[in-house]
């Protein structure tokens, strides 16, 4: 291992993604390697909303001397993104004309991008294609790392595929990377992660066009993570008994989909049946027990027939 300091000016790597993808693991591996090569390293991260699928990012800066722990806008040397929309969020932070862009093409649609949260409903999400983005940066890689990792047997190793790609842009040797990865991933997953790392390196060596972004779910349109139970929503039927409703407004204010209102008689009514996911919050909270949500096909059919 040569421990020669080659960077007088700090090298800036920005790792971004959403909660649970392993952004922090990637930055820890990188920071450790840099430190073990005698560089001064500063790392800072924000993962406040990580548990809710919110954005996570981590700044890693290394060089002979690093002062600030955050990377100034426009001076990112490598942007490593584990999720496509997060990649786009940060693409303007890349050093113009010089930086490298690496991103998984996986889409994870955030809940707030779905105004209508029924399964299969349309969701707002970045429309830019990988070609459009790659053409805007000096050097860009967009790959379907998640599928590559899944084919190796563990989707969660997608971050290591990207690490493989990242390793080709920095000076550290392959052994150094493998050693660090083995120390940071859960012991049972060392093998699959090392394979994933190899795949990332191999992918970088190949010559290929960029794939179109792949939406990773089993339906034709994006489905929000963690809402599978609302598959049943096709069968939701809401029963509101106007004779019992006392116009307290609880259901109207508490419905997460905002699809209830008080009509001109001040009785609760469903304004937009397509938006109702059948979550039952209105049923639970109606103090007058005036709302019943039917959520199985049979129950919904029976309720619809009166």
């Amino acid at each position: 291992m040569d421990k020669k300091i080659t960077h007088k000016e700090p090298v800036n790597v920005l790792v971004v993604g959403v909660g649970g993808q392993g952004v922090i693991m990637v930055s820890k591996v990188l920071a450790t390697i840099c430190q073990e090569h005698g560089y001064q390293v500063k790392q800072s991260e924000v993962h406040g909303m990580a548990k809710r699928g919110g954005g996570v990012f981590s700044h890693v800066r290394f060089g002979e001397q690093v002062y600030s722990p955050t990377i100034p806008k426009g001076s990112v040397d490598v942007l490593l993104a584990l999720e496509w929309a997060e990649a786009l969020r940060w693409v303007n932070h890349i050093r113009p004309g010089e930086g490298t862009f690496i991103s998984d093409t996986q889409h994870i649609v955030p809940p707030f991008a779905c105004r209508n949260r029924k399964r299969g409903a349309e969701a707002g999400y970045a429309r830019e294609t990988s070609d459009q983005i790659i053409s805007r940066v000096n050097k860009g890689f967009a790959l379907d790392a998640t599928t590559m990792a899944r084919e190796l047997g563990n989707e969660r190793a997608a971050n290591t595929v990207l690490l493989g790609l990242l390793s080709t842009t920095l000076e550290f040797s392959e052994d150094v990377w493998c050693d660090a990865i083995s120390r940071f991933v859960p012991p049972k997953t060392v093998d699959v992660n090392l394979q994933a790392f190899e795949q990332g390196r191999a992918w970088a060596a190949m010559d290929h066009g960029t794939p179109e972004p792949v939406v990773h779910n089993d339906g034709p349109t994006p489905v929000v993570v963690g809402r599978e139970e609302h598959e049943m929503s096709d069968f939701v039927q809401l029963d509101i008994n106007p004779a019992w409703c006392k116009s307290c407004d609880i259901c109207v204010k508490m419905c997460p989909e905002r699809c209830l209102k008080l009509d001109d008689q001040l009785k609760a009514v469903l304004t937009d049946p397509d938006r109702c996911t059948g979550c039952r919050i209105c049923e639970w909270l109606c103090p007058d027990l005036a709302i019943t949500v039917h959520r199985t096909p049979e129950a919904a059919r029976a309720a619809a027939q009166g």
Binding site: A243, K246, C248, P287, D288, L289, A290
Partner: peptide
């Protein structure tokens, strides 16, 4: 309908 006022948490 029960006798509680509108919005009474007892329900």
């Amino acid at each position: 309908p029960h006798f509680l006022c509108p919005g009474c948490g007892h329900g």
